[in-house]
């Protein structure tokens, strides 16, 4: 058993690019679910339209990178509007069903053989990432004790955490304002807000767009850090994991999704690495008849599921949340 490997895996995951993607996506979900009470189960859809907006613009249409970024963000906004118009007047469960369905529709279409010429089929698109990599100012990777980051990871970490900081700043500034107050009120009782002369639909739409834009940023960052845009990355399970990260940190807290994502990845990578170390080699710590090496990676998912249940039952406000003011015990 090599504990160095485990610690490296846990820490580099907690601060690495994957945790950033989750943090960005969860910040968006925090605006939707945490503050406004909108059940968006299709955050992966917002990520995928933005990601493919960029990739298709650059790879398929051969247009400049910056235009791709604009197209990507624009696609996320349009998706929010398209989903919001029919569902925001309905009960919360309908938004959940429609968003989850749309995300799947998008993922299936992006991966379809029939649209291979545009979206690249199941392998997705590559070859849009050079302008991003060219900006990389680092010459070398970074090693801090047992934790190490490669050169390109270091660049992604710099960009990513900066984006996270900006997004958090925006959320913080908005949520202390009267606008944020209206959202929190809608989360609790939209009829009360309506009776006071506020256009609830418009506020929900603004929240849906804002959170969708954060999701879009997450999607674009995800494909930039890994260099390819693959449809299967944007599945429903991703959205569920992002919810898990948000709820660990605490919904309706500015830093909740960020800390939650770091903890989520620290645990996922740490536990995964622990069991993979424990089942490795000729004489593993955990005997083979209990656990095969290919089963080891499942333990973290089993624990994640169990953990999510226990978290919701015993501490629904997450680590930072204030139980008195979260949406969890709502309808």
């Amino acid at each position: 058993m090599d504990f160095g490997t485990i610690i490296d895996a846990a820490f580099s995951a907690a601060f690495g690019p994957q945790a950033i993607v989750f943090a960005l996506a969860a910040i968006g979900l925090n605006v939707h679910f945490g503050y406004t009470g909108l059940l968006n189960f299709g955050q992966a859809g917002f990520m995928s339209v933005a990601a493919f907006g960029l990739a298709v613009t650059v790879v398929t249409w051969d247009l400049p990178f910056w235009l791709g970024l604009i197209v990507g963000m624009f696609a996320a906004i349009v998706l929010a509007l398209v989903l919001g118009v029919p569902t925001l007047r309905l009960r919360a469960d309908y938004l959940a069903i429609v968003t989850i369905a749309s995300a799947e529709i998008l993922r299936l279409c992006f991966g379809a053989v029939e649209f291979k010429d545009t979206f690249g089929g199941s392998n997705g698109l590559t070859g849009f990432v050079r302008p991003y990599q060219k900006l990389n100012p680092y010459n070398d990777g970074l090693t801090l004790g047992v934790v190490s980051f490669s050169r390109s990871d270091l660049w992604s970490i710099t960009v990513g955490w900066t984006l996270v900081a900006i997004c958090c700043l925006i959320v913080w500034a908005l949520m202390r304002s009267p606008w944020g107050r209206v959202l929190k009120s809608i989360r609790e009782d939209e009829d009360a807000v309506r009776s006071l002369g506020k256009n609830v639909f418009a506020y929900k739409m603004q929240a849906l767009v804002l959170g969708g834009v954060f999701g879009g940023i997450a999607g674009i960052f995800h494909i930039l850090k890994q260099g390819s845009s693959v449809p299967t990355d944007f599945n429903t399970t991703f959205t569920f994991y992002a919810y898990a990260a948000l709820l660990i940190g605490g919904a309706a807290r500015v830093l909740g999704p960020v800390v939650g994502s770091m903890i989520f990845w620290f645990l996922i990578a740490g536990i995964g690495s622990f069991f993979s170390e424990a089942t490795k080699g000729a004489d593993p710590v955990i005997p083979n008849w209990i656990m095969q090496p290919d089963q080891a990676s499942l333990i973290r998912l089993i624990l994640l599921g169990l953990g999510l249940m226990l978290l919701m039952i015993f501490r629904p406000q997450g680590i930072f949340g204030d139980r008195r003011e979260i949406a969890i015990d709502g309808r």
Partner: peptide
């Protein structure tokens, strides 16, 4: 409803709708 309220016709509810988490 929100426009009705803005026009100056505001209602309360039988089961009070105070926003208990504010």
């Amino acid at each position: 409803a929100y426009k009705v309220a803005r026009l100056g016709m505001v209602r309360t509810f039988q089961l009070t709708k105070v926003l208990s988490k504010l």
